[in-house]
């Protein structure tokens, strides 16, 4: 398992490393682009969990859709380089306290959870199974989610049309 472990750690490093750039970079464009590394790394981790379909869809939706949208929005922003902190009422000390408390709780949860380990099973293709479940056992939730998304789409279109009429 050594080589697979190596690949896993590389993927984990990619995910966490680019997430760190997203969090700490002062340049919004760098943050937006390094989100790509996080998404790709997460997709790789899904492959390790034998979820090939989820991995592909993860890249399709997050890199192909959401990331492009975010980069678009960032690029149309005026003067991205100099960041102006708008909220000055809360300083470093309260932030550190909150982050420390959060890290402590999360660490405690990680340590005390009885992690179940399973024997690795040979990966099998999941696309057909997911399709059958969506259009079989889970048809109602699937359709409901589709209707909600459709409503959101129509809402977005009608909002942007109103803006046009007012001008």
């Amino acid at each position: 398992m050594q080589l697979a472990d190596l690949v896993f750690y590389l993927l984990a490093l990619l995910t966490v490393g680019s997430a760190a750039v997203v969090a700490f970079s002062r340049n919004v464009v760098y943050a937006a682009f390094s989100l790509m590394g996080t998404f790709l790394g997460a997709a790789g981790l899904y492959v390790f969990l034998a979820a090939d379909f989820v991995a592909v869809v993860q890249v399709l939706i997050y890199v192909g859709g959401i990331l492009v949208l975010m980069v678009f929005a960032v690029m149309l922003t005026h003067r991205i380089e100099d960041v102006q902190v708008s909220n000055r009422s809360v300083g470093t000390l309260p932030a550190l306290l909150v982050v420390g408390a959060g890290a402590a709780i999360l660490g405690y949860a990680v340590v005390t959870t009885p992690w179940r380990t399973a024997e690795p099973v040979p990966a099998e293709a999941t696309t057909r199974i997911i399709g059958d479940l969506f259009l079989g056992d889970y048809l109602l939730p699937f359709e409901l989610a589709s209707v909600v998304l459709l409503a959101a789409l129509i809402g977005a279109v009608s909002l942007s049309r109103k803006e046009l009429r007012r001008e």
Partner: peptide, 10 residues
């Protein structure tokens, strides 16, 4: 790959 067509689009 089982999800090959989707992979190309992705």
């Amino acid at each position: 790959m089982d999800a090959g067509l989707l992979f190309v689009l992705t």
